[in-house]
Amino acid sequence: MRLNSVGYRYQRRAGWVLRDVTLTLAPDRITEVTGPNGAGKSTLLRLLAGILRPRLGELTDRPARVGYAPERFPADQPFTVRGYLSHMARMRGAPDARIDLWAERLRFGELLDLPLRELSKGSAHKVGLAQAILGDPELLVLDEPFAGLDAGTRADLPALLTGLRSGGTMIVVSDHQRDLRTLPDVDRLQVAGGTVTRAPGAHDERSATRTGNGEGPVAEQAIIEVVVPAHQAATVLAKLRADGYAAREPRT
């Protein structure tokens, strides 16, 4: 996907939020967008997702299936979580089974029958992430996905994104709190002063970024599902954990 001299302003007489942005985003990559408040990170993400159209320049080769999770999920809607996600799944031609799958992975399975309006900010944010992912997007754009998440989901999310990338999804994330800093092979964009520049990538920082035990760079992570007979589940989990993998049972 390529941006050629892209410029955007919200009103005709308003100042340019972004101007002369030229960059290429590679497929199968995670791109982290950073920058100070009000610099235009969300505007850039909305341009990439296709919500906004460039006022100047052009954006080419955007994948057809785009998932987008806004910074503030619009929870003021008269649906239950499951009802809302069912509607979104139908719009995207995705099976309803994916709702339970992603609700489980994002740890809000027990909230599926609650009205959207009763969700906490963090839970609503998870629903926003789920609706973006469940359509099997080729391009996934997440605006501050870590904001408001509980510690467990926060810890799971980088691995989850890595898994999606391994499946061929191009991912663009604005990350104010640098929760992706430990991931390898992340492209970084810095938004400031109306322009977008490439920041040093993770591969440039890898020598300085070590795992907790200091043994070396963080390996690329992926999520796999293993189907085992029920009576062997505990044994397999124990083996995986003994081998140093993060493994957990799906919650029922």
Binding site: R46, I51, R72, P74, M91
Partner: peptide
């Protein structure tokens, strides 16, 4: 408004 954007993307 935010949902209108999500619907348009879908």
């Amino acid at each position: 408004d935010g949902q209108r954007e999500l619907g348009a993307l879908a």
